[in-house]
């Protein structure tokens, strides 16, 4: 899995989000000296007051009502100093919220330092919240992985295994039984919080290659009900050719996991051989996963039953042995 680091050009950020966030450009140019490189924001209120210790200047700077009220309360000389402090570092951009007016010299100073300034009518808290979501999504760790992702009874099963082991055939069989294909062969994975979400590459979406048949489009063949754009990956099903000398899990008491983008995901290694019906096993994996989430673990229950049985037998035996009547 290959991870890549990204930067967000302020121009691209503006073009991508100006409609959703209602952004207008106040400076004459959107071209700045710094790209957005981190998904965090900073409110430079303390910088305006003169406390420069912790100026996180690489972040998107947000000026809300508090900052602007403070700024407007200053006399001309103090305003000049405040602006000097604000632009003492290279900034990627400044966004003013609540449609607040900016004094002319503010824009002038920004242009002098090549810092694009944008404005939105949105209320500050809501704006910050939405902005964080947009930036988080843009900067989320992501990778591409070889495998197939299917939504089986609402559980995201990611099938991995060597080429030619029959992943696509399993996917096809599952789709035929009413489950939904997310992506076959190439899965783009994005991390969101402690979840990993998979989807297909845009131009490959829902196309599949079936050996001996060629390229098919799942949506055309099976209809809209057979596809899904993205799905959280909950279980990795690793398909392995059957090998009698290998230790296959026989009880499932210990949950094994694998890491995707630093997130732990349940992993099962399932043996496969010609004529074996993996589809039914895949459905069972999905249903059993749901049962475990709801607190029902069959392996643990059986183990408990067994231990209880042996315990009670031991007691009965002791009773009978001591019974001399």
């Amino acid at each position: 899995m290959a991870e890549h680091k990204r930067t967000y050009k302020v121009r691209d950020f503006f073009e991508d989000n100006k409609d959703e966030l209602g952004l207008e450009l106040l400076t004459s140019s959107i071209k700045g000296r710094l790209d957005i490189t981190i998904p965090d924001i900073f409110r430079p209120a303390f910088v305006l007051t003169g406390f420069m210790e912790h100026y996180l200047h690489k972040r998107v700077q947000i000026l809300g009502e508090t900052e602007m009220m403070y700024f407007c309360s200053l006399d001309e000389g103090q305003k000049r100093d405040a602006l000097k402090r604000l632009f003492s570092k290279i900034l990627c951009c400044i966004i003013v919220t609540k449609g607040l007016e900016l004094p002319d010299n503010f824009i002038k100073e920004a242009e002098k330092s090549s810092v694009p300034v944008m404005r939105t009518k949105w209320q500050t808290t809501l704006f910050i919240h939405t902005l964080r979501e947009i930036l988080d999504y843009y900067f989320a760790p992501r990778s591409t992985s070889h495998g197939s992702l299917v939504d089986v009874y609402g559980v995201g099963l990611f099938f991995s295994g060597e080429s030619g082991i029959g992943k696509s055939e399993i996917v096809l069989d599952l789709v035929e039984r009413g489950h939904r294909l997310v992506a076959d062969d190439v899965v783009e994975i994005i991390k969101k919080g402690d979840m990993v979400i998979g989807r297909g590459r845009e131009h490959l979406r829902h196309f599949m290659e079936i050996r001996g048949v060629g390229i098919i489009n799942i949506m055309d063949v099976f209809g809209i009900r057979a596809i899904r754009i993205q799905k959280r990956i909950e279980v990795v099903v690793k398909l392995r050719e059957w090998d009698p000398s290998r230790d296959w899990d026989r009880h499932g008491l210990d949950e094994k996991t694998t890491e995707i983008l630093g997130t732990k995901v349940t992993q099962l290694v399932v043996p496969i051989f010609p004529g074996k019906n993996i589809t039914v096993i895949a459905e069972t994996i999905a249903l059993n996963h749901m049962l475990k989430i709801y607190g029902f673990n069959a392996a643990k229950k059986l183990d408990r039953n067994l231990i209880d049985l042996m315990q009670s037998r031991k007691q009965t035996r002791r009773y009978l042995r001591n019974d001399t009547e």
């Binding site: 230790d247 296959w248 026989r250 009880h251 008491l253 392996a299 059986l302 183990d303 067994l306 231990i307 042996m310």
Partner: peptide, 14 residues
């Protein structure tokens, strides 16, 4: 001490 519980049964079968 706990007899052949499920985990050990798994070991044995393996």
């Amino acid at each position: 001490k706990n007899g052949i519980h499920l985990r050990l049964a798994g070991e044995l079968v393996k």
